[in-house]
């Protein structure tokens, strides 16, 4: 029947797409556990030697720690600043704030290559030496809009009278924020922060331009690849992959499950 045939074609298409999307991912993951010292078939047995080798490499460990530092600092900064900005945006309507909101979302649509170059030349102009801190600024610049937009969307759907009730019952503005508003936006905020961490952890372009000599994990991998492929690169890439997937899945639970349902 034609119905059965088109069904089959459809499944083939889906299968092929999935294969092309995920085969490279699977290959990297698989070879990160391969005992052989080449990244080619046949698979020579399960082994953790490439992970041992990676963690034995001092530069890798430094890069991993740098990545973690950047992710933590950027997460804390965007959480505090992003939540404050979102709160200000949702509470007061003014032309000044509307202008601010279009500015705050601008980095979302700018190409990272452009941002990387622009930031680097800006730092050079004002005499700031690129190091891990300047890379953090770059990351915060791009990820702040995520946090502002997600938290703002949550705040907009929060019934204003809930906050007014808190004030009415004796809460100061700060108490009403801390005891009522913050717990209600916390899931959305946590989701946003996880997306920020996922993004920051595998960001290459902006970091490459703005981190100076302080390599993060993606920058370190990029450097190693230029010198030829060593299977321990697969192990490093897999670490990034798993971190990003874990953060994104968790974020999805917080944002779609609890956030959209309410």
């Amino acid at each position: 029947m034609t119905g059965g045939r088109s069904h089959l074609v459809w499944w083939l298409l889906v299968g092929a797409t999935l294969l092309f999307l995920f085969a490279p991912v699977a290959v990297v993951l698989l070879f990160s556990f391969n005992a052989a010292s080449t990244t080619s078939l046949p698979f020579a047995g399960f082994s953790l030697r490439w992970y041992e080798r990676a963690f034995g490499d001092h530069q890798f460990v430094v890069a991993l720690l740098n990545s973690v530092k950047v992710a933590i600092v950027v997460a804390i900064f965007t959480a505090v600043v992003g939540t404050s900005a979102a709160f200000a945006l949702s509470r007061r309507r003014s032309r000044w704030l509307d202008l601010f909101s279009s500015f705050v979302t601008a980095p979302l649509i700018l190409p990272t290559l452009f941002l990387g170059i622009a930031l680097l030349s800006f730092y050079t102009q004002i005499g700031l030496r690129p190091w891990l801190g300047t890379a953090m600024i770059g990351h915060a610049l791009v990820t702040l809009p995520f946090v502002v937009l997600i938290v703002n969307a949550r705040l907009m759907r929060l019934d204003r009278s809930i906050e007014e009730a808190a004030r009415d019952l004796g809460a100061t503005p700060f108490q009403s924020f801390r005891l009522i508003v913050l717990p209600l936006v916390a899931p959305a905020l946590l989701g946003a922060i996880l997306i920020v961490v996922a993004w920051s952890f595998d960001e290459l372009v902006i970091t490459f331009f703005t981190s100076g000599g302080d390599a993060t994990l993606p920058v370190r991998i990029w450097g190693m690849l230029r010198r030829g492929i060593d299977p321990s690169v697969n192990a490093m890439a897999s670490i990034i992959l798993l971190t990003t997937i874990a953060c994104t899945l968790l974020a999805g639970r917080f944002i779609s499950g609890r956030e959209i349902a309410r």
Partner: peptide
């Protein structure tokens, strides 16, 4: 005076209970 310092309380039309 801000709402928290006025000796009145309000019952809102949509209850405004704290959901959490």
């Amino acid at each position: 005076l801000p709402p928290n310092r006025r000796p009145v309380n309000t019952v809102f039309q949509r209850y405004a209970l704290f959901p959490h």
